[in-house]
Design a protein around this nucleic acid. Structure first.
Length: 108
DNA sequence: AAGGTGACCGGCC
DNA sequence: TGGCCGGCCACCT
């Protein structure tokens, strides 16, 4: 369960997400150079549970839906965090997703 | 070693 | 955006 390079890379991107911003798994995958494996990003986030520096609550799917909310705490914690950052969330969906969307930088 | 899984994405209706 | 299907890649048992 040590940090693998692949996971660490995803975490690095997630940590780069600014306050009050959100991004999608696909965007992170693309930043990693593997846009096709957006699933892997979600998998990496799953392992991020052990970490604290990974704001997984800022990572949502392409539709702006808090799909991972169920994985967070089993509650609306994810939504609470986003709203706390100024992101409007209703029914597990981010309002003005495009406005809050932030594209991760390419980390080679 | 092989199969199953998954917090997805894109295309189509 | 909504729902369904196929593809994709790494991790787990």
């Amino acid at each position: 369960m040590e940090n693998d390079n692949f996971f660490e890379r995803v975490y690095t991107i997630a940590r780069q997400i600014p306050f009050g911003r959100v991004t999608s798994y696909g965007a992170i995958a693309k930043a990693l150079g593997t846009a096709r494996s957006a699933r892997m990003v979600g998998w990496a986030m799953n392992a991020s549970h052990s970490l604290e520096d990974v704001p997984a609550h800022r990572v949502v799917n392409r539709k702006g839906l808090l799909t991972g909310k169920l994985h967070f705490d089993g509650t609306n914690l994810m939504q609470q965090l986003l709203e706390s950052e100024g992101v409007e969330v209703v029914d597990n969906q981010i309002l003005n997703f495009e406005k809050h969307f932030w594209e991760p930088e390419i980390t080679q």
